[in-house]
Design a protein around this nucleic acid. Structure first.
Lengths: 221, 221, 221, 221
DNA sequence: CATGAATGAGTTTTCATTCAT
DNA sequence: TATGAATGAAAACTCATTCAT
């Protein structure tokens, strides 16, 4: 699947990249705050530091901004994940590390990821598949890691189990971001990682469940 | 937390409820298809079967419709959950059943739940808390069930573990709906329930992991 | 060829007609003055006596206004022509009268006709044919009248001659309007009618050319 | 009346002329296709083969382009006419030839003439008179030719008749271009010339009307 | 002289909301 | 209560023109 090209009137590729970076940065901040639909193109231009006319030298429609934002976020996360996961050996230890790394990325890019998950649905029919593909790729990285573990004999999992676990890990990563209003009152990132990993490894019936002391349990509103 | 009141000019309570039901039904269908922002009040009125003027006899702003929709969905899901979970004994078997029931509800209300999760963020600052509260309540039901299991000695879990597991179950339910583009190609609902439950109970290291035969693995597009 | 329908949100046909009449009246005045492209929809709305929002309850695009204007002018001229020409006997006298009538119509509707001839080309590809058809119909009325004269033995003309003469008459009618900057300095309408008719009937070589005394020859700028 | 000067930043007269020729050529093609208003200055620059910045070194406003185009077309037609008509003797034969020549020019420059007649009205108030003057000059050439015929005793025409005939001839020339959608389905250029000339000379009542055999009468769509 | 990136006023169009009937 | 015509603020997008390089 080819990357969808966003047309720009400006020829200088270097400049295009620079302006788009400004644009994305400004847009993410605005989308985070008011969502894609409530953000106007003028606001985006202003946040990016240039005029509305200039904005439209680098995109054709408002939706292009959203696509650019999503694309950029995916690329970032994707790159990070690739670096972290691909060279990992198929051992339980490296799986654990991989998960921890991923959750950390999701924590760092919380804002961006949140924006993306709330706005992808606003992408038009022709941009969506590309974005979904990216997501599948990332889930695929976890599948690969898990498969390597299975091949190494470290884990015994059916194909379906590999798939579902990859999805679970992925969703738990996102969860930390988009349910932060609940989760981050209860846990620190480290605790979250620890708890989720342990749960994943041993299940709720497992005796081995370490009883981590409950700190940061200020549940009260 | 009191239910946010949506003002109506019409006095007849019976009529108000009837009209709002029409409205919600129409709106859900439209939101599902085009999202909240791309749906106009005229379309909502038409889908509800009355005029734009009448629509505004029962709400004050377009956002009221969204609130009403979310509220109605939450009430539905919440009611169902309450019926299923509250009277359940604190046994592993009933926990299992509770999860299965929940996933089934999420499957049945897939469309509505999807709509809600994509649009809640469009709720204004004063409607959001009420809706979030509802969500917490539902997570709370799972917490209670788990706690009963712990109290019964069926499970050994820290408070934090109870909390995180409740969230996980909840999110895995939603996942079935909002990642259906990926998951429902891979699994039937029954398989999904089976796989997730098993995983939750025994973890990935558990030897007990039943190797359910992989059917419906038509991963190919 | 069916009349192209211009969509209106408003249901009441009576009202639609009334509003469109206001609209056309205002638009003609503006187009006359500044042309279609230099006229804004807001100006049209204002000239019509209602708000921009209301304007768009009765049309979908700015081009609809142009189409409505052209259509209305054609209908007017066409109706007038039909009344004047269709019942005319096939005699030279009635042909003369028909031409005089037509030129008078063109004089009365000068402004409208001018507007139309300057702006039809701005009609989109799907509105143009309908408008051209109307024009052909009008030329056709002269063809019919001429043909009746030929059948009566009052004139001896080939089919091609009938066609070209019909076009000539038609264009000379328009000419009075769109070359008024030159012609109306030289002639009164009556003189113009007299001169053109005589010319048409006897040609430039005809001895019979009456030497109408030259008044209104204030050629000087 | 002095030719309106279009300011240019560039000094080199040779270059100015070259660039303007490129510009006019490109612009005519574009105007023909989409009209003056729907053509952007960027498109004109591109079609001319240079950048938008360069375009503005040779004009001050977009309207200058239109003026330049109109001016150039007029000059062309005017030159051609002058060559054809001025040295013509005042005989019927040379009048006939003059008309035929003119119609031929109009046929050759059809596109340009069409463009001009559709767009002159877009010229601002201060460019229009100059352009109108040019048109008067051309009509004047026919007036002169006719007057010479009258002086020679070949024709008996009042001053007013001379004027109106000159206008008729001129308009019939243009007609061939701007009513080509109708006329060119009915006649070849030769037939058109023949028919119009004959009509002009003998009128519709004239017995002398040759019955040219009707070919190319594929009136059907 | 040539370039093309930047600008922002201006344009069309939409749509939530009101209110007279 | 129900209706739907009227409103106008606000939004996306365009494009003639300028000016630093």
């Amino acid at each position: 699947m080819k990357k969808r090209e966003v047309m720009a009137s400006v020829k200088d590729e270097r400049l295009v990249q620079k302006r788009r970076d400004q644009m994305i940065k400004g847009a993410v901040a605005l989308f985070k705050q008011k969502g894609f639909h409530r953000t106007t193109t003028r606001e985006i231009a202003k946040a990016a530091g240039f005029s509305i006319g200039t904005l439209y030298e680098y995109i054709r429609t408002k939706e292009d901004v959203l696509y650019l934002v999503c694309d950029s976020i995916y690329d970032h996360v994707s790159d990070r994940l690739e670096k972290e996961l691909d060279n990992k050996k198929g051992t339980l230890e490296s799986l654990k590390l991989g998960i921890a790394n991923f959750f950390q990325v999701m924590d760092e890019m919380q804002a961006e990821v949140l924006v993306m998950y709330q706005e992808v649905k606003s992408l038009s029919k022709d941009a969506l598949p590309y974005v979904l593909k990216k997501e599948m790729d990332m889930v695929g990285m976890f599948e690969n890691l898990l498969t390597r573990c299975v091949e190494n004999g470290e884990l015994k999992l059916s194909e379906q189990q590999v798939k579902i676990i990859a999805h679970d890990i992925f969703v738990q990563g996102q969860m930390w971001g988009f349910r932060r209003w609940a989760l981050q009152k209860l846990f620190t990132l480290e605790q979250y990682i620890e708890l989720q990993t342990e749960l994943l490894f041993t299940g709720i019936k497992g005796d081995a469940l370490k009883m981590v002391p409950d700190t940061k349990m200020d549940v009260g509103k």
